[in-house]
């Protein structure tokens, strides 16, 4: 047992067993952790959507429109003008709504408020809402991304 080689041999064996254990663990854990990561869904890149007729939406109101898989809020201002913004609150991801009595965009989750230019004016939201372009063609409302 006091031969120097046998100590080396033992070290070597330990090393082999150790690396085998690590390799084995890696071979088990890697597929599992990769499996847990949701695959990127082949999302259809939407660049514009039709949001119905101008006459469908009363003045001084707002509706949520499906833009790909994201909600967009379309607002028909009291002045008759149309504006569209991302409806996802920049605070913690709730969906905003048009609040008639305030004439503002409002988030019910933590009382965040945005003006009708999408600017965060009160409450916790840290950033303004992204704006979308609204085009009216033959009485049809078309919402598109601002490139």
């Amino acid at each position: 047992m006091d031969h120097p080689e046998s100590g080396n041999k033992r070290d070597f064996l330990k090393w082999v067993l150790g690396s085998a254990a690590v390799a084995w663990l890696g071979a088990v854990l890697y597929p599992i952790s990769a499996y847990l990561k949701p695959p990127k869904q082949g999302e259809v890149e939407v660049s514009s959507v039709k949001a119905g007729k101008v006459t469908d939406i009363e003045k001084d109101s707002g509706v949520i429109v499906r833009f790909g898989n994201k909600p967009v809020i379309l607002i028909h201002k009291a002045t008759g003008e149309f504006r569209a913004f991302s409806a996802t609150c920049t605070h913690l991801d709730c969906t905003v709504q048009y609040k008639k009595d305030l004439g503002m965009i409002w988030c019910a989750c933590h009382n965040g408020k945005y003006d009708l230019n999408g600017r965060n004016v009160s409450g916790p939201p840290p950033k303004p809402l992204d704006e979308y372009k609204v085009v009216i063609k033959d009485g049809e409302i078309l919402i598109s991304k601002i490139a």
Binding site: I73, C94, T95, A108
Partner: peptide, 24 residues
């Protein structure tokens, strides 16, 4: 409904309230 506005009264269960309130 992922395409509806958040209704009023969204709040966590009471046992998360103290953390939630702190963040607010």
């Amino acid at each position: 409904d992922a395409f509806a506005s958040a209704p009023e009264g969204i709040r966590p269960e009471w046992y998360f309230m103290f953390m939630f309130q702190t963040l607010k």
